[in-house]
């Protein structure tokens, strides 16, 4: 379900660290209930943007709104409606998994049966009485996600949510995120896992050198930036020749026709162009 009202609104956001501009006039809206992928190569300004949204970084200039509350001016109200899953787990290590959740549930005034629900959902029920320090990396990650969705936030920021998770847990988290989005939670996700973005995101923004490069659905990205190739192997003068032929222009298409007509073809494969290729193409262009 995608609503028209933006849950997150950035207008001309600039963040500078002395001479270095980490975020450069970034403007975008994220609709409520959307699963939004925020991508970019290392150092693109993703983390800085999230830090601004979570109030731990003052913007140099620009207008930032989350759930209708201006940040940093009304941060105290804004922080009550969002959850933040950072890239590193920040549990109280000497507490058990359950005690960690109980502390946050008490702060948010959430009934403890919600803890049971989430522990069950994330398959952590059996480990709930083990110290968080003794959890595996994947379990710590899942516990962190549980903690940040305890209060059913309107907006959920996630930084690499499926890092260190096994295939089963990854699927579990992806399903949960989709479910949250369909229930109206705006999920703002940064990740380097392109497959994940392609699978679950409704919309994707690509950031490069602090600037917004593109904003669209993953499918639209692929179709707009797709490059079609055919890898052909054929015999010529007794030798095996391999050729990569682009299908995006007439010359390439004619070349393929010639080969098919005149040379004995051994193999012929069309190359699929996925979201990762599109991402690399876009960010590569930016670096060029």
């Amino acid at each position: 379900m995608i609503c028209k009202t933006p849950a997150i609104s950035l207008r001309d956001l600039v963040v500078r660290f002395r001479d270095f501009t980490a975020v450069d006039h970034l403007s975008m809206d994220v609709a409520a209930g959307q699963l939004f992928g925020f991508l970019g190569p290392n150092g693109a300004g993703k983390t800085t943007t999230i830090r601004v949204l979570t109030g731990s970084q003052q913007p140099t200039s620009g207008h930032v709104e989350v759930g209708g509350y201006r940040i940093p001016h009304h941060f105290d109200r804004a922080k009550q409606i969002f959850g933040f899953v950072p890239d590193t787990e920040n549990h109280i290590d000497e507490f058990t998994g359950r005690e960690n959740l109980e502390l946050f549930a008490d702060l948010y005034e959430v009934p403890h049966r919600r803890i049971d629900e989430l522990l069950e959902r994330m398959e952590l029920s059996e480990a709930q009485h083990i110290r968080a320090a003794d959890y595996s990396k994947g379990m710590r990650r899942k516990l962190l996600i549980c903690r940040e969705i305890l209060h059913s936030p309107q907006v959920l920021y996630l930084d690499e949510p499926t890092a260190n998770l096994d295939a089963h847990s990854t699927r579990l988290v992806r399903e949960l995120l989709r479910e949250l989005a369909s229930d109206g939670t705006t999920v703002f996700l940064t990740t380097h896992n392109m497959e994940e973005v392609e699978q679950i995101c409704d919309q994707v923004a690509i950031l490069c050198r602090g600037k917004l490069v593109d904003l669209d659905t993953p499918a639209a990205f692929v179709s707009r930036h797709a490059e079609r190739f055919v890898d052909a192997q054929f015999e010529r003068d007794g030798q095996v020749v391999r050729e990569e032929i682009s299908m995006d222009d007439a010359a390439g298409r004619n070349r393929l026709s010639d080969i098919v007509r005149s040379e004995p073809c051994l193999t012929m494969h069309s190359r699929e162009f996925n979201f990762q290729d599109a991402f690399l193409k876009i960010t590569g262009e930016q670096f060029d």
């Binding site: 979570t54 105290d76 922080k79 009550q80 969002f82 920040n90 549990h91 948010y108 903690r147």
Partner: peptide
């Protein structure tokens, strides 16, 4: 160091 303070500061606690 464990960023627990940052996590608490993002809850309803000021």
């Amino acid at each position: 160091e464990q960023k627990t303070l940052a996590a608490l500061a993002l809850t309803t606690a000021s």
